[in-house]
């Protein structure tokens, strides 16, 4: 039995300790907002926060995060009011939307560390892949939050 703290709630799950956090979230806890993309830490669709830092859940064994505070898109806010979510709505960032939970988690973590990121900071920190090509709006939305 493994105990996890996700979105400020304790969850007990019966899994192999080597199971990636992503699959515990999706398969055991039915939290499907966090997406499976590549499974090899490249695309960022599975990005969550571990103690406030952006992390790729698809390569994070669940045994590594038993003492950590985990935040997923479901916990970024309960009503879509997080500044990143509000900016994403205002700028109509998502197209198909599949990669956007991971994109928003990466953006939220960046803004916590660098409240006024430059384009270079954004490029360096947000390596998430979006097949729809929403990158220009991702940048614009992040800059709009930095200004406020």
């Amino acid at each position: 039995m493994i105990t996890l703290t996700i979105n400020e709630q304790k969850h007990e799950v019966e899994v192999d300790p080597s199971t990636p956090l992503l699959w515990v979230l999706r398969d055991k806890l039915a939290m499907t907002g966090t997406k499976f993309g590549c499974g090899i830490a490249q695309c960022g669709a599975c990005t969550v926060h571990i103690n406030g830092m952006a992390a790729r859940a698809c390569v994070t064994p669940v045994s590594m995060v038993t003492d950590a505070k985990i935040t997923t898109i479901e916990g970024l806010s309960t009503d879509g009011s997080h500044p990143v979510q509000a900016a994403w709505v205002a700028h109509e960032v998502p197209q198909c939307g599949y990669c956007q939970p991971g994109m928003m988690m990466a953006a939220a973590a960046l803004l916590t560390q660098k409240p006024n990121p430059t384009d270079a900071d954004i490029d360096a920190a947000i390596t998430n892949i979006c097949r729809c090509g929403t990158y220009p709006r991702v940048r614009a939305a992040i800059h709009s939050i930095a200004k406020t």
């Binding site: 499907t32 907002g33 997406k35 997923t72 994403w88 709505v89 960032v93 956007q100």
Partner: peptide, 11 residues
């Protein structure tokens, strides 16, 4: 879009 920023859509 409001649903998409909350991770709600069921793909």
């Amino acid at each position: 879009i409001p649903d998409k920023v909350m991770g709600k859509p069921v793909f």
